[in-house]
C-alpha cells in the first residue's frame, strides 16, 4: 500500500512537471483589431520561438491548457468565449493579451461592449499593451506557468498577475 502511495505521489510529481513544461495554447480573438493577434503569431516564428517552452498553438480547446484571449468581449461573442473556456479540461489558465482584453481598453463603456475578459471568465494573467509586444506575451505565458505552479501548490502564488 505504501509503495502504491509513493508511486502515485511520484507520478503526480512527474505529471505536475509535465503541466508546467507543456502548456498548449488555444488563441481566441474576441474582437481584436488584429494587432495583438499578429503579435501572438509572431511569438511562434523563429525569432521568438515559443516552442522552446513546449508551447504549441493547438487550436482545439479539448487539447489546450492555456486560453489566450485578445480583444474586447462584446455581447455577440461572450457566449463563444464561455463555451471555449468550458470545453477546456482542468487544469487550465487564461491569459488576457492586450489592453482591450484586460479592461476593454478604448472601447470600454461602448454600447456593444461587455468589457475585459474577466467579466466573463476568470483571468489568471493580464498582459497590457496596445499591441502587447511578443516579449511581453512570452513573459506573460511564463508568468502564467508560475500561477499554475501556485495553483498546484508547488510554490506560493506570484505576487502579481499583471505583467508590466
Amino acid at each position: 500500500m505504501d509503495i502504491a502511495k509513493k508511486l502515485t505521489e511520484a507520478l503526480g510529481g512527474y505529471i505536475n512537471k509535465g503541466r508546467v513544461k507543456s502548456p498548449w495554447v488555444i488563441h481566441y480573438d474576441c474582437g481584436s483589431c488584429n494587432g495583438c493577434d499578429i503579435e501572438v503569431l509572431a511569438c511562434l516564428t523563429p525569432v521568438f520561438d515559443l516552442e522552446r517552452f513546449g508551447i504549441l498553438n493547438i487550436g482545439d480547446p479539448k487539447h489546450a491548457d492555456v486560453l489566450l484571449v485578445t480583444g474586447t468581449v462584446n455581447h455577440r461573442n461572450k457566449a463563444v468565449l464561455r463555451n471555449i473556456y468550458d470545453q477546456m479540461p482542468d487544469p487550465k489558465a487564461v491569459i488576457a493579451v492586450g489592453t482591450c482584453a484586460c479592461s476593454g481598453g478604448v472601447f470600454q463603456d461602448c454600447y456593444n461592449v461587455v468589457g475585459g475578459v474577466d467579466q466573463i471568465i476568470p483571468v489568471d494573467v493580464y498582459i497590457p499593451g496596445c499591441a502587447a509586444k511578443p516579449e511581453a506575451i512570452i513573459d506573460g505565458v511564463v508568468l502564467a506557468l508560475e500561477v499554475v505552479k501556485g495553483k498546484l501548490g508547488l510554490q506560493p502564488l506570484p505576487k502579481t498577475t499583471v505583467f508590466e
Binding site: V80, L81, Q87
Partner: peptide, 12 residues
C-alpha cells in the same frame, strides 16, 4: 457532471 459536447468552434 455537465455533458461534454463535441467541439463546434465554440458556437455550439
Amino acid at each position: 457532471s455537465a455533458p461534454c459536447l463535441p467541439y463546434l468552434s465554440g458556437i455550439q
